[in-house]
């Protein structure tokens, strides 16, 4: 009977179609305006894409040619092997992790006080708020690689420049995120502190920080994860880490070692992912959010 019912229902509805149509005209009308708008947006997107393909001369021949060569590269990558450079690679990996950790930590420590300045509920002055926000935006919109090029001029080639580069670009990003976290936090503890006679600093220390610290810590962990990824490429401009070997080895087509390096990166990032997920859960607690 269960199997028969939907069939019966459908048949009844089919038979009843004209009356249903008359009774619920809104459900059966095509919304021509909305459809035209959707089509226009899709057409615009597709048109821009077509222009791009034409402009960058994408052609099937070029793609197939390149794919053929990529296939050959893939064959050359097997089996991945360090070919005797394991020690150097491990050292470079350590450097990469060091760059990511130190860069993130520095950025977080510097971003915290600035984020307080940028948060509307801590410093109500709109000029300070606006200026700090725009400053952070500028720091953030310069890519890590560009920061690395700038810092290389100051401290020379090497991982130190890389750590400074990550610290600079993350300072902007973390500052913005921290400020947003501080603005959305519960204001009642702070009001309680003020009502029982606390000063502005007391309000921040006892009313604000205990609430936002776990959120901030979890954001910092996210950034550490993503920075291990960006620290792997920072060596391309000479700022230390595994990237300099990666660039060199790709240029000279030592693809077995390249594959080994990529595998090393994948494993490391997966390990850090795992650890930081655990830590995040421990910090925020399973019950909260």
């Amino acid at each position: 009977m269960n199997a028969a019912r939907p069939e019966a229902l459908r048949a009844a509805a089919r038979a009843d179609l004209p009356r249903l149509r008359a009774r619920y005209p809104a459900q059966f009308r095509t919304d021509r305006v909305a459809r035209a708008r959707t089509l226009a947006v899709l057409g615009l997107l597709a048109g821009l894409a077509g222009f791009g393909f034409w402009q960058f001369d994408f052609s099937l021949g070029r793609l197939l040619n390149g794919l053929g060569r990529l296939g050959a590269f893939a064959a050359l990558m097997l089996p991945p092997s360090p070919e005797g450079h394991l020690r150097i690679f491990l050292h470079a990996l350590g450097e990469t992790l060091g760059i990511a950790f130190l860069g993130t930590l520095t950025a977080a420590i510097l971003a915290f006080p600035v984020a307080l300045l940028a948060a509307r509920n801590v410093v109500p002055n709109p000029f300070a708020h606006f200026a700090v926000r725009r400053g952070l935006d500028v720091m953030r919109s310069v890519d890590v690689l560009i920061w690395a090029l700038i810092w290389i001029n100051v401290v020379g080639l090497g991982p130190f420049a890389g750590a400074l580069a990550i610290a600079s670009s993350d300072f902007g990003a973390l500052g913005k995120l921290f400020a947003e976290a501080i603005e959305t936090c519960d204001r009642r503890p702070g009001e309680g502190v003020v009502a029982s006679g606390g000063s502005a600093l007391h309000r921040i220390r006892f009313g604000l920080i205990p609430g936002v610290l776990p959120v901030l810590a979890s954001q910092v962990l996210y950034f550490f994860e993503s920075n291990t990824r960006s620290a792997t490429i920072i060596g391309i401009v000479g700022a230390g880490g595994i990237g300099q070997y990666l660039t060199e080895l790709i240029r000279v087509l030592e693809l077995k070692q390249v594959a080994f390096l990529v595998l090393m990166i994948l494993v490391t990032v997966a390990a850090i992912d795992w650890v930081s997920t655990r830590l995040r859960r421990a910090i925020i607690g399973p019950a909260a959010r």
Binding site: L63, G66, F73
Partner: peptide
Amino acid sequence: TVPDVVFALIFVIAFGLG
């Protein structure tokens, strides 16, 4: 996980600059 710059490095060799 593999950064776009690394893909770009490999693809530049396979597809040519651009």
